[in-house]
Design a protein around this nucleic acid. Structure first.
Length: 827
RNA sequence: GCCCGGAUGGCGGAACUGGUAGACGCAAGGGACUUAAAAUCCCUCGGCACUUGCGGCUGUGCGAGUUCGAUUCUCGCUCCGGGCACCA
């Protein structure tokens, strides 16, 4: 053994060397090639916030292992990277530092790109995109125009959260206790125009598609299902007494309609005004409405308000039984959901029950459970389950499920109602009154109305990004931007000054990656057809709803524009857990961040990658542990020394001849192939790299002890063992393995090597270990021949000395023999 | 309130379709090497007790159940994490 070998490998030199080599040899460059089977692996692209954090390291390490593993298996692998570059933080950072958001963003991209390269991630950097570049967002603007033409994007007036000091709309998560997150000013509701994408048109398809996404975690599918929130029921009209107006309601419980004892309207309901005009109740109701609006504004949405309401003095008619029903305005009815009017059934809805108790309205049970009889007098809570209908006219005696259908059918026949579906999902408001985003490409003309910017005039570029002293004021403050002429009539007109929500950019970037440099269209159809859908998408579960839903939506939009044929963007999804330290997520505000940069400098990229893969399975949270990194480093150094001390075995050309191996060599050879099987299995079934790594560690331990304890170690076996270690580790620690591969005399890079295959005849054990139990407790283990019969096994077990000690003179009541595994003697 | 997850040594985590619980790693303790330290190598390492033996009992959040046998299946809880939440 050569004792002059260094204890630790020089990761700095090695990593730089191989990063340069890969770049120079364009190892990771790919193009569509229909001759080859493709694999598209993608990690959610980062927001260029400044520097990468441990969450990125984890995310990209996982993706890179998959990419490299699939390449070794002969796939044509697309593995791109880009930047989700528009957004609020850039603008805030720019404000704070007095610089331009573009400068801030491009500087960050340059720095973070360097960091990613230092991790040795196998991206095809020629495909890099940044969404803030006109070359990218011009296509988004084109899509916008096309959607506008198809009526899938529209403009409407809505109420938004407005901060006067910041002169902008705030997202709901930016409103903290009713105040602006940045300046602490009270946030005001403001009605203004904004642009909306008609995602609700796709609600059903987005919902149904979830059933087919079997490669997604059930959790994410459930979250999306809940978010879409489909409810089926009855839409029904209640005529207002002495009026020609009707109140439209929606209910999922038509079976309870005979239990209606009042009607509740939202305070914003358009009919309220005329119901109360000139009535004695008018003042009281108006006071109540004003009070409720204030309370709703103040309420942080966290806790429920007490049920309150006010009687309008008017009645409406239940079309099913002709009863007069008093009409209330109530604080718990939402204008945004259903019709803003709710038929109240106190016996079968807890909110209505609370309300009825408070205002002493009648409670009338009309759905009876099987095991007890509800009566209004002794009910303490609403009965919300199904049951059998009572006091419900012709429908009495029917079971809820059947009654629902019958009642809807009846309403339809009589013409006062019909089946109806409602969604929780709202159309997607994409307008932002911000500078740092893609301008919405429309022009407002007094004569022609709202006109889309003609295709040949795209892109509408964001002003000020090129000049060093560029102006980054919101667009509505930049006259040179918004003053324009109407493309239709040529008269003076105004450009739209809203920019798009950054979620729009990230809704189709994975498509653009398939043809990122296409200059005459958003995508190259052939390339998109070849690469899509993304075979494996990887990212944080925090994007489970918005991003992943929007991306699915956009894929369907592009399909319906004839640009794509796929229905779903991501066939498999891996949601990785968070990186935790001291019990909470790493974050600047908690002060528990570990900078990956420091680690890479101290241990090298391969060690950091290895640790992040080894510490936990990907879907689980990863508890940060500094000593764990030390352990990963120790392991690599051990492998390094092991291989360099045994380079001699690589000079021979001999291959393993199983028949000629003695028992010890046979055993190591078996271990090699068992390890290949285990590692491949771990990756294939669920990407559990932690167990894959531990399997390799076992192999390394076995090789070491074979070297130390075996005199007649077979050269070919040792060579195959060491090569296998490198091949199996390569996707996780690429620089390290490339270097050792080269140093052991291989002419070709390990990047081009094939993933090892398990030889099934090699993994056969020579003997079986049989567990002998007495009453289910392990009492002995026996080594037996492979071909032993069950009868022989049973005999052996009964003859066993240790077993007999426990049996005493008791007679076996029953003997269970599990083939090749165990014998259990029951006494 | 509703819907998902999860709970295994001091720690991160293993365990195929019910069949050897604790792989692998970390930490800890002991030893070797060294003038010494680091590094490296070897050994021990769930708990309990009279540890005389290559041994025994107990042990996968808690309580029941099914089974020859349960970390794994069923029922009922507890705690932790996440999502949604006055959705009619």
């Amino acid at each position: 053994m050569n004792t002059n070998l260094p204890n630790r490998y020089d990761f700095k030199t090695i990593e730089t060397k191989w990063q340069q080599r890969w770049q120079h040899e364009q190892t990771n460059k790919v193009s569509a090639d229909t001759e080859k089977k493709k694999y598209y692996v993608l990690e959610m692209f980062p927001y260029p916030s400044g520097r990468i954090h441990m969450g990125h390291v984890r995310n990209y390490s996982i993706g890179d292992v998959i990419a490299r593993y699939k390449r070794m298996q002969g796939f044509n692998v697309l593995h791109p990277m880009g930047w989700d570059a528009f957004g609020l933080p850039a603008e805030n950072a720019a404000l704070k530092r007095g610089i331009h958001p573009a400068d801030w963003t491009y500087d960050n991209i340059a720095y973070m790109r360097k960091q990613l390269k230092a991790m040795g991630l196998s991206y095809d950097w020629d495909r890099e995109i940044a969404t803030c570049r006109p070359e990218y967002y011009r296509w988004e603007q084109l899509l916008f125009i096309k959607l506008l033409e198809k009526g899938l994007v529209y403009r409407k007036e809505t109420t938004v959260n407005w901060c006067d000091d910041c002169a902008t709309v705030l997202a709901r998560e930016q409103v903290i206790d009713g105040c602006c997150w940045r300046c602490d000013q009270q946030v005001l509701p403001k009605t203004m125009y904004g642009w909306f994408l008609k995602i609700t048109d796709y609600a059903d398809e987005l919902l149904d598609g979830l059933d087919k996404l079997t490669g997604w975690p059930e959790k994410v599918r459930t979250m999306q299902r809940n978010w879409i929130g489909k409810s089926q029921g009855l839409a029904c009209d209640f005529q207002i007494e002495n009026s020609d107006k009707k109140i439209k309601i929606f209910t999922t419980r038509p079976d309870t309609i005979f239990g209606v004892t009042f009607m509740s309207l939202a305070v914003e309901h358009p009919l309220v005004d005329e119901l109360i005009n000139g009535t004695p109740q008018e003042q009281e109701v108006r006071d109540f409405i004003r009070q409720t609006k204030i309370e709703k504004q103040r309420n942080t949405l966290d806790d429920e308000l007490d049920k309150k309401g006010a009687f309008t003095g008017k009645y409406c008619i239940n079309p099913f039984n002709g009863e007069r029903v008093p009409v209330y305005v109530a604080n718990f009815v939402l204008m945004e959901y259903g019709t803003g009017a709710v038929m109240a059934v106190p016996a079968h809805d807890q909110r209505d029950f609370d309300f009825a108790k408070k205002y002493m309205l009648p409670i009338r049970p009309v759905v009876q459970p099987n095991d007890l009889l509800l009566s209004a007098d002794d009910m303490e809570a609403a009965w919300e389950d199904n049951g059998v209908l009572a006091e419900s006219g012709d429908f009495s005696g029917m079971e809820s499920t059947a009654a629902k259908k019958a009642i809807i059918h009846h309403a339809e026949k009589m013409g006062f109602g019909k089946p109806h579906v409602t969604y929780r999902l709202r159309d997607w408001g994409i307008s932002r009154q911000r500078y740092w985003g893609a301008p919405i490409p429309v022009i407002h003309c007094d004569d022609c109305g709202t006109v889309g910017v003609p295709q040949e005039q795209l892109p509408v570029t964001l002003p000020g990004t090129d000049a060093a002293d560029g102006n980054n004021a919101p667009l509505h403050q930049q006259e040179s931007f918004y003053k324009t002429t109407c493309p239709k009539c040529g008269k003076p007109a105004q450009r739209e000054t809203d920019t798009m929500d950054t979620f729009v950019e990230s809704s189709w970037y994975f498509i653009r990656f398939t043809s990122p440099r296409k200059t005459d269209a958003p995508l190259d159809k052939t390339a998109a057809e070849y690469w899509l859908s993304v075979d494996q998408y990887i990212g944080g579960v925090e994007h489970a709803i918005l991003h992943l839903l929007y991306a699915r939506f956009f894929t369907k939009l592009l399909r319906d524009l004839g640009l794509l044929t796929v229905d779903e963007p991501f066939s498999n999804l891996l949601t990785q857990g968070m990186v935790i330290k001291d019990g909470s997520k790493m974050s600047k505000s908690k002060g528990n961040v570990v900078d990956p940069n420091d680690l890479i400098t101290q241990y090298g990229a391969d060690t950091v990658r290895l640790f992040s893969l080894f510490a936990a399975p990907p879907e689980r949270d990863l508890e940060w542990n500094a000593q764990g990194v030390e352990g990963a480093s120790r392991f690599l150094n051990r492998v390094y020394r092991l291989i360099l001390a045994n380079t001699a075995c690589f000079s021979g050309n001999d291959t393993v001849e199983m028949a000629r191996l003695d028992s010890n060599n046979r055993q190591l050879y078996r271990k090699i192939h068992q390890t290949i099987q285990r590692v491949t299995g771990s990756i294939e079934t669920n990407f559990h790299f932690n167990t894959a790594i531990s399997a390799v560690m076992e192999l390394v331990n076995d090789i070491s002890s074979a070297i130390n304890h075996q005199d007649s170690l077979d050269n070919a076996v040792l060579k195959e063992a060491l090569q296998t270690v490198l091949l199996l580790l390569f996707p996780m620690t690429p620089h390290f393995c490339e270097e050792l591969w080269e140093q052991t005399g291989h002419a070709e890079n390990i990047s081009t090597a094939r993933w090892p295959e398990c030889n099934p005849s090699a993994i056969q054990e020579e003997e079986l270990t049989i567990v002998i139990q007495v009453n289910g407790k392990v009492r002995n283990r026996l080594q037996v021949q492979l071909d032993i019969s069950d009868d022989q096994l049973q005999e052996l077990a009964l003859a066993d000395e240790r077993v007999n000690k426990f049996l005493g003179d008791k007679k076996p009541k029953k003997i269970i023999v599990v083939k090749r595994k165990l014998v259990n003697i029951v006494v």
